[in-house]
Nucleic acid binder design. Structure first.
Length: 141
DNA sequence: GCCAACGTTGGC
DNA sequence: GCCAACGTTGGC
């Protein structure tokens, strides 16, 4: 199963908001970037990803799961972009901060570190396992 | 089709 | 609040 990372500014849409959206989840709209779009299109129902707070907190705070695969984003006037639905699965026992990620040599190739502007990113299995451990979780798939 | 100018994102 | 990095736009 593939893994992903979703970035959001907490002032716009936070982990708490995602949790409040419930088990059914909610759409992840607003992607207006082709690299991010390709990632969204590659997602399968049940794929899990990290939920990252940018700007404020700058940390991975929880795990989410895709509940609906790629479909058109009605908020996009051009009709070029789409979105998926995601739901909150569980919080990390302990947030994993950007600072910690940068310090860990095994995570230095993460897109989060090298291309911080990409809002939806793939995460490798190795990176997934390391961050789950750092976050105080047994490894999940 | 190139590239300069501009807007946005996000770390610091 | 600043500014670097990146993507997009638009003139040529």
């Amino acid at each position: 199963m593939a893994h992903w990372l979703y970035k959001s500014e907490p002032s716009t849409w936070s982990w708490d908001d995602q949790v409040a959206a419930g088990k059914k989840g909610t759409f992840w709209s607003g992607v207006r970037n082709h690299s991010a779009k390709l990632n969204l299109m590659a997602m399968k129902k049940g794929d899990r990803g990290f939920f990252y707070h940018s700007n404020e907190g700058k940390a991975i705070v929880g795990i989410v799961e895709v509940t609906k695969e790629y479909y058109p984003d009605h908020t996009d006037p051009t009709g070029k972009f789409g979105m998926v639905d995601i739901r909150a699965v569980e919080p990390l026992k302990r947030p994993v901060t950007l600072e910690e990620i940068k310090v860990e040599p095994k995570l230095k190739d993460m897109i989060l570190v090298n291309n911080s502007r990409l809002s939806v990113q793939p995460v490798t299995d190795a990176e997934w396992a390391i961050i789950c451990r750092m976050g105080g979780l047994k490894q999940k798939d």
